[in-house]
């Protein structure tokens, strides 16, 4: 079985994230990047499948030079190989364009049975790329999966959306997983050493046959007009409980007309 796991390199949420002033795109240079934490669950799920059977796990990313780190981390965790789609024309791409490029990369790999993704990227956080990929590739799509199983060439999944659903789909399929599905492993020393020898391909838009004019900021189908930092919340009154803390809470709530 051929499994593609989509990994995105994002600004670390623990750092002070921001935007480029000139074009309102996410600042990817000024903040340390990491493998999107929610994609680690997708990598882990792919590795669990390859640990228990015959599966070839390929980590795929689209992003600037630094995005290679997301591939490296996936290889250290245990993925067999990686693909890095990088091209200057990609800067500022929206989700529609991202899905177009990733779909082209998956098609180029050929005979992919399963595409695993995170439930959302921790920067853009739209949760739409997986559904767009399924739409473009004609694959089945199951989003927000909290438990995944295989039997008779089918995926079965527990989906933790608004209600709990048990879903079945035939392959090929795109499955996005939540942080409920597993506990991602840390790369072992052996894994880190082994990763250095694993193959990584670098593909440009030309390699994928995608027109550079159809992606990037100028071709985006939505535009950010303004970005405003939210004013810090100002701290109100903090009291220490001296036996009357609960009464004080009630007094405050009554003063604010909540009672």
């Amino acid at each position: 079985m051929k499994i593609v796991v989509l990994v995105k390199h994002v600004p670390d949420a623990a750092a002070d994230r921001g935007f480029n002033e000139s074009d309102h795109t996410t600042d990817r240079a000024g903040v340390d990047g990491i493998l999107s934490e929610l994609d680690e669950y997708a990598v882990e799920e792919a590795l669990k499948l390859s640990d228990s059977g015959e599966a070839d796990v390929i980590a795929v990313t689209m992003g600037p030079d630094g995005a290679l780190d997301a591939i490296k981390r996936s290889l250290q965790m245990g993925a067999a190989s990686g693909v890095h789609v990088v091209d200057d024309a990609l800067h500022g791409s929206d989700a529609v364009a991202t899905s177009k490029v990733l779909a082209a990369a998956i098609s180029k790999l050929g005979d992919v049975n399963l595409v695993l993704t995170g439930m959302a990227s921790t920067d853009g956080g739209m949760s739409v790329v997986p559904a767009m990929l399924a739409e473009r590739l004609g694959f089945a799509h199951i989003g927000f999966v909290g438990e995944l199983g295989f039997a008779d060439g089918k995926v079965s999944a527990r989906r933790d959306a608004d209600v709990t659903e048990t879903v079945e789909a035939s392959l090929p399929a795109v499955v996005s997983v939540t942080d409920q599905i597993n506990e991602p492993r840390y790369p072992s020393f052996k894994g880190i050493m082994a990763a250095k020898k694993k193959p990584v391909e670098t593909w440009s838009l030309a390699d994928l046959g995608v027109d550079a004019g159809s992606v990037g900021l100028s071709a985006a189908w939505s535009v950010v007009e303004a970005v405003t930092a939210r004013p810090e919340r100002t701290q109100g009154e903090i009291v220490t409980d001296e036996g009357d803390g609960g009464v004080k809470v009630a007094e405050y709530l009554a003063g604010q007309k909540f009672i």
């Binding site: 903090i238 009291v239 803390g245 609960g246 009464v247 809470v249």
Partner: peptide
């Protein structure tokens, strides 16, 4: 606490119970 409009430094078990009682009393 940096986001709080009002905060109590204390054990939630006693503070929430007392707050609930006080709210019921006021209602």
């Amino acid at each position: 606490f940096s986001m709080a409009d009002f905060g109590v430094v204390g054990d939630l078990h006693t503070v929430l119970r007392q707050a609930t009682e006080e709210i019921e009393k006021r209602k």
